[in-house]
């Protein structure tokens, strides 16, 4: 049977974010980005261009880099979402976060959450990526500070760190 959601009132949805389950009321025209920041109090994911032209809002949905500004919240329910808040293990930074901090991969920091989760998806799939694979994976994340070189070096350093 066709499911129908009327547009003019909030609906209840179950979101699985960073391993936690949230049962919240949200406006069905909201994007996942808006649900994360406004309804789930997870402001780590950033509002950039809001049009899919910068990558600042990238999150992982079922492990796949996805632009949360273009994904409707109602199409993200019941799926595994990972945001930058879910990278660290309590106080222990993810190797990517540590490498970005150590090597200047993050300056103003606005693109960093989207870059970090996109890079995590790359390392999950390709533990030892080449420089070209890193460039290709991050080709949807604009950074206006670093000139990208420090970002690539940080991903390479994290890959070393993660390697068994």
């Amino acid at each position: 049977m066709t499911e129908e959601i009327a547009g003019d009132q909030k609906v209840m949805g179950r979101f699985r974010v960073n391993g936690d389950e949230h049962h919240v009321a949200y406006a069905p025209h909201k994007t996942l980005l808006e649900v994360l920041r406004e309804d789930l109090d997870l402001p780590g994911t950033k509002h950039g261009c809001e049009l899919g032209e910068c990558g600042a809002c990238a999150v992982l949905v079922d492990g796949v880099p996805t632009l949360s500004c273009l994904l409707l919240g109602l199409e993200a329910t019941e799926r595994e979402v990972l945001t930058v808040e879910g990278l660290a293990d309590d106080a222990r930074l993810h190797p990517l976060q540590a490498a970005f901090a150590d090597l200047g991969g993050s300056q103003c920091g606005y693109c960093t959450p989207g870059v970090l989760v996109t890079a995590k998806a790359l390392l999950d799939e390709t533990p030892k990526p080449t420089r070209e694979q890193i460039q290709e994976a991050l080709a949807g994340n604009l950074c206006r500070c670093t000139g990208y070189l420090q970002i690539f070096e940080a991903v390479e350093a994290a890959a070393e760190e993660c390697a068994p």
Binding site: M1, T2, E3, E4, I5, A6, G7, D8, P28, H29, K30, T31, E34, H47, E50, L51, L72, L74
Partner: peptide, 22 residues
Amino acid sequence: MMRVPQFRYLAPKSVGEAAKIL
């Protein structure tokens, strides 16, 4: 900030249902 304007959302479960809705 740009919001998506309100809409009604239908989620058909088959191509036939989708065609009927259209």
